[in-house]
Simulated scan of single mutants.
Amino acid sequence: MGKLSYSERLLVKKAIKGDTNALEKILQKNHEYIYKMAYIYIGNKEDALDIMQEATFQSLKSIHTLKEPSYFLTWFCTIMARQASKMINQKVKIRELQNIPEFEELKDPSLDKNQVIDVLQAVTSLEDKYRLVLQLFYYQELSVKEISDLLVMPIGSVKTNLKRGREALRKALGEDYYVR
């Protein structure tokens, strides 16, 4: 999880008090990190930018509720996760209505030698429900209970999605794939 510097925490404190310029500055300083997280949540550039925009709007309305400035990035990423969940649910409903095949062809992870890229490709090729739960568990370091509360999903479903997501990753990367 990204850490905030002292000056960034001061900006967050100003934002909590209503300074929208301070909020803009803190978001700009952490733009790269926030974009990476949004991309991991949703899996494509346009949707990632959309959830970042919506999360920014939501944060403007509710920044005053943030109690601890050092948790700003976690708080903001939680807002993005909720937006991603909404977007995923909308896409699922659209797919069902249009009867479009649910999955795209997997990208060949062997095209790149870099393990980070291999893992990112494998994660983004997963079903939305597995990708989101894995991202929250491993990248955001949320507990199963926290994920359950965030996504309004039974704990058993979260555990099942984690297990199936891991299995899908193992299958996509190969049984003997080693990630440091």
Rank of each mutant, 00 (worst) to 15 (best):
T56Y: 09
H31W: 10
L10E: 14
E127D: 12
L23D: 05
S5F: 02
K129I: 12
L162G: 09
L132G: 05
N44I: 00
L73T: 04
I51Q: 02
F57R: 06
Q83P: 02
G43S: 09
K91D: 03
S125F: 07
I117S: 11
L120S: 10
I51F: 07
E96T: 00
K86S: 11
N89P: 02
N114A: 13
V179L: 14
S125E: 10
Q121P: 01
V119N: 04
N161K: 12
I40W: 12
R131T: 08
T78C: 08
K107L: 15
E68L: 00
P101V: 02
K3H: 09
V119S: 05
L134Q: 04
A48N: 06
P109H: 14
R131E: 07
M1I: 01
E102W: 03
L150M: 10
L27Q: 13
K91M: 05
A84G: 09
T20V: 03
Y138D: 10
R170F: 02
A122D: 03
G43M: 04
N99E: 11
A15W: 01
D19E: 10
L151H: 03
E46Y: 06
R180W: 06
V92Y: 10
R166Y: 06
S85F: 13
F76A: 01
E127K: 13
Q115T: 13
A15L: 01
D50E: 12
F57S: 06
A172F: 13
R95H: 02
Y71E: 10
L151I: 05
K171A: 11
L142R: 05
N30D: 05
L4S: 07
E146N: 03
R164N: 12
N21H: 08
Y178I: 15
E127A: 12
Q98H: 00
T20E: 12
I40V: 07
I155Y: 11
A55Q: 03
F137C: 08
R82G: 00
D19C: 04
G43W: 09
I63E: 02
I51M: 06
E8Q: 15
K25D: 09
A168R: 12
Q135W: 05
G2W: 10
Y6F: 11
T78M: 06
D50K: 11
M52Y: 03
G2V: 14
R9L: 01
I26V: 15
K25W: 03
G2Y: 14
E105N: 10
L111V: 12
K91L: 08
Y39G: 02
N99H: 11
K67L: 06
A81D: 00
H64D: 02
Q58N: 02
N30R: 13
H64Q: 08
K129L: 10
Q83A: 12
N21I: 02
E104D: 11
K25N: 10
Y71M: 08
V179K: 11
R82N: 06
I88R: 07
H31G: 11
P101H: 03
A172I: 08
A81Q: 06
T20M: 08
A81M: 05
L73R: 05
I88T: 07
E54Q: 09
F72H: 08
E46N: 00
V144L: 04
L27N: 10
S148Q: 01
R164Q: 13
I40C: 07
R180E: 15
L162K: 12
K129P: 01
K113I: 09
L111D: 01
M37P: 03
E68Q: 09
E105L: 09
N114G: 08
Q53Y: 03
A55H: 02
C77L: 00
Q135R: 11
